[in-house]
Design a protein around this nucleic acid. Sequence first.
DNA 1: GTAGGGTTAG
Length: 581
Amino acid sequence: MQFLKLPRLLMSHVRRIHLHSQPLPLPSESTYRFDGIDDAVALFHRMVDMHPLPSIVEFTKILGMIVKMKYYATAINLYTLMEYRGVVPFTVTFNILINCFCHMGRMDFAFSVMGKILKWGCQPNVVTFTTLMKGLCVNDKMLDALYIYNEMVARRIWFDDVLYGTLINGLCKSKMGKTRAAIQLLQNMEGQLVKPNLVMYNTVVHGLCKDGHINEARVLCSKMIVQGIFPNIFTYSSLIYGLCRAGRRKEVRSLLNGYCLNNKVDEARELFNLMIERGEQHDVINYNILMNGYCLNNKVSEAKRLFHRMIERGEQPDIITYTILMHGYCLIDKVDEARKLFQGMIVRGLVPDVWSYNILIKGYCKIERVDEAVNLLKHMFLKNLVPNIITYNSLVDGLCKSGEILDAWKLVDEMHYCGQLPPNVTTYNILLESLCRIGHVDKAIAIFKHLIFERSFAPDVWSYNILISGCCKNRRMDEAMNLFNQICFKNLVPNIVTYNILLDALCNGQQLDKAIALLIYQIVDQGISPNLHTYNILINGLHKSGRPKTAQKISQYLFIRGYHPDVQTYIINELCKGGYC
DNA sequence: GTAGGGTTAG
C-alpha cells in the first residue's frame, strides 16, 4: 500500500521505464555518467527492478549524483522507492537524505531522519551533524546549533575541519551578527588537533570588515600571519572593502556635505597598491571594490582614473564595474555621465541587467527627469528584462518627488491589482512620506489606516517614523506620541531615528528637560546608541536655549558611557567656547 | 563504500 503514497512524478517514471527500457547491466566499474536527471532516474529504476538487487552503495552513489544535480525532491522520492523495495540504507544514504531536506528548507524532516538512522541500527557520524549544522545555518536557525553541539559531545564525536568551517561560516553570515562568536571559535581551536585554515580566517576577516570592525580585522590578520597563514586575494579584498566602508558613515556624509574627515579610502588604496607591488594575484573584483569605495566617498573622478588604469593594464571591466561607476555619478547627480557609461558598456558587448537599469532609473528620478526613467522602463520590457520592486519603488519615488503624486498612486494601484509584483512596505512608505512632505499629514494617517485594513499592509518602524515626523513638523505632539506608543503594540522596536525625531520636536518646542529625560531614561537605558544627529539635536538645542553648561554635562554623560561625540558636535562646542555661538 | 564546509564587488 505504501506504493500508492509515491508522488505522481515518480509514478510516471516507473511506468515509462517498464514500457520502454530494456534491462541493462550496471556499469562495471561502478562509476556513473549521466546525460541528465532523466538518465539517472532511469538507471535507478532499472536497479530497483533487478534480481538480485544491487548493493546499497550503488544506490547511494546515484542518489549522491542526483543531489549534486540539485534534484532534492527527486532524490527523496527515489529513496522512498528504494526503501520500499527492501534495500537496507546505511549512514551515508541517510546523510544524503538529510542534505536534501536541508536544501528544501525542511529542517523538521531533516531531524526526523536522525530517528530513522537509529531505527535502522546505524550511527550518526560527523558528516550527519555537519549536514544538519549547515542546514540550520542556511535556514537561519543558529540557536538550534547548540543541539548539534550537545549531541556531538554526548556521542563523543570529534569536530573536524569541515564542521568548524561550517560553523564559522554560519556564525559570520547569520543575521544575528555572531562574528565575535566565530572569533572565539577560532581561538578555541588553538589547542585542538584541527587547526584553523586560511578560508576560516578569511570568512571571519570579511565578517568583521562587513560590520565595520576594520581594526579587529587587522588584528586577526596579524594573528593569522604569526601562525604561518598568509593573506591571499580574498583577505586583501575584504580589508580593502572594510577600509572603504570605514570611511563612510552615513550621518557624517550628510552632515558634513560629503567631506569625510576620517576617510580611510586612501588607506584602502595603499593596501591595493601594496598588494600589486608584492606581486599578489588580483582581479576585476579588487578593482571594483576600490572603485566603489571611491564612489561612495565622493571621489568619482578617482574611481574613473582607476577604471582607465584598469583597462590600460589589460583588465576587462565587467557589468559590476560599470554599475559601480554609474552609481557614483548618479550619487552626485551626473546622470548624463552615468548614461554615457551605460552606452559604453553596451558598446563593449556587455548586457545591462536589472540592477544597472535600476541605478539609471533612480538617478533620473532623483534629478526629476521621470520621463527618461519611464523610457528606460520601456527599454527593459523591449529587452525582456523583468523590472523588480526596486525599479518600481524608484519610479514611485520619482513621480512623488516631481509632484506627480496621482500618477504615483496609479502606478502603485496597478502593482496591487495586477498582483505580479505587489507593492511592499517601502512602496507605501514612499507614498506616505510624499504626503507628509507636502503637509497632508491627516491624509497620510487616514491612508495608513486604510492600507492596514484593506491591503493587509504591515507597517514597519520606518512607516511610523514618517508619520511621527509628519506630526512633529505640524506641531501635533500628542498625535506623534500616540503613534510612538503604537509602535510597541505592533511588536516593533523604535530606532534611533524615531527618537531623534522626537528629540528634535521637543527641542524645537523648548521642552529641553523632556528631551534630556528621553535621552537618559529611554534611549541610553534601553541600550540604543545615540548617533551624530542625536548629539547635534540636543547640544544645539541646549546651546540655543542658553544652557551651554548642561550641553557640556550631557556630552560628558554620553562620553563616559562610551558614546563619543563626532566632528560636528566638537566644532559646535569649540565655537561656543570661543564665544562664537 | 560514501555523504558534509569555505572566503572578495554593484
